[in-house]
């Protein structure tokens, strides 16, 4: 799917929707409306949007603890997501999952995942299901650079390659494993180089450049859809907020964050790219931001007006209690 003005405007809108959703979620945490951990995607929007722009509704996406952006980019309704963060019964997961477990199975968004590298094996498994059934769906698994240290990264990608499964492994390398700089705990700079061990393409792109992400993801997804197997796609990116709430951010300087925000912001870079091609007028830019803002405001109103789940909900959905062995 090559980039044109119309698609670019859609992607630009998606990036703003994510940015504003995250900033609002952060504000709502401060107000006490969102409990628990909140891992914000601000600064990394180009990755989720650039990849998901290629995906169909029936393609699978599996994520991380930092997956609001992936879910929104794959088409999860924003109202449901905000309500989930609020813990309300109208939430994507009826208030049972929260920020780290947003899922929308109607869109084949199989869930954010609170375990680092937890989605890699399951994403490989959705690829196996696709292969057994002989359909042409693609599975995308997002994970951070920290996941590359874990065994399931190795085991999952190994099997994905062994059976040439239609999976794209997308590493969002934001340079930090929670509060630790990657170089303190990793022995290779680029996660993409690890692809050599699995005999699959390893591609590293500038994760702040949505055009570059989109192009590389398109190649990887097409390759998977053609049945030629997985790709390990690394997007070098940066998160603007701390790992989660309560992060004192002593591991990085304010100047470093400001430098990325001022000079490497994915939304600003994309706006400049579009303006250069006359794909975005000032007025369209304004309209897109207003649309994103209005969607977020509506989502907060929806979440705020919704009720918490009845207490009985705590006891439901452990097993499918309706099911009976039929003999």
């Amino acid at each position: 799917m090559s980039l044109d003005a119309e698609l670019a405007r859609r992607m630009y809108l998606d990036m703003w929707r994510i940015r504003m959703f995250e900033e609002e979620a952060n504000r709502q945490t401060g107000l006490g409306n969102v409990a628990g951990a909140l891992h914000l995607y601000c600064g990394e929007e180009a990755v989720g949007v650039g990849v998901c722009a290629h995906l169909r509704d029936d393609d699978y996406v599996l994520g991380t603890h930092r997956s609001h952006g992936h879910c929104l980019a794959k088409g999860a309704p924003m109202n449901d997501m905000m309500a989930e963060l609020f813990g309300k019964e109208t939430g994507s997961c009826a208030g049972k999952g929260g920020s780290m477990h947003v899922a929308d199975l109607s869109k084949n968004i199989l869930g954010a995942n609170g375990i680092v590298a937890g989605g890699i094996g399951p994403a490989t498994g959705t690829g196996m299901a696709t292969k057994i059934r002989g359909t042409d769906q693609v599975s995308v698994c997002f994970f951070g650079d920290g996941a590359a240290a874990r065994g399931p990264f190795h085991e999952g990608i190994l099997m994905g390659s062994l059976w040439k499964l239609p999976v794209v492994y997308v590493c969002e390398n934001n340079g930090y494993q929670q509060w630790v700089r990657r170089e303190n705990v990793a022995v290779v700079d680029s996660v993409a180089t690890m692809a050599a061990s699995y005999d699959i393409p390893g591609v590293s792109v500038d994760g702040q450049d949505v055009v570059e992400v989109h192009e590389a993801a398109g190649e990887a997804i097409d390759r998977a859809r053609r049945g030629e197997g997985p790709t390990l796609l690394e997007a070098r990116t940066y998160r603007y907020f701390g790992h989660s709430m309560g992060d004192r951010e002593e591991y990085r300087t304010r100047e470093e964050v400001e430098d990325w925000r001022d000079n490497r912001d994915p939304i600003a870079l994309f706006r400049a790219y579009m303006a250069e091609r006359q794909w975005l007028t000032g007025r369209e830019d304004e309209e897109i931001r207003t649309a994103a803002k209005e969607a977020v405001t509506a989502a907060v109103e929806f979440a705020d007006a919704s009720a918490y789940p009845p207490l009985a909900a705590a006891h439901a959905d452990v097993l499918d209690t309706e099911w009976r062995a039929d003999a």
Partner: peptide, 28 residues
């Protein structure tokens, strides 16, 4: 023959793949 997969020695991967396939409607 198309429904049996002999794996590397990788239990986390094996169960993880099973979980994903099950989420996608298969019965591993």
């Amino acid at each position: 023959p198309d429904r049996i997969f002999e794996t590397p020695i990788a239990e986390a991967g094996i169960v993880g793949v099973g979980v994903g396939a099950a989420l996608a409607g298969m019965r591993p």
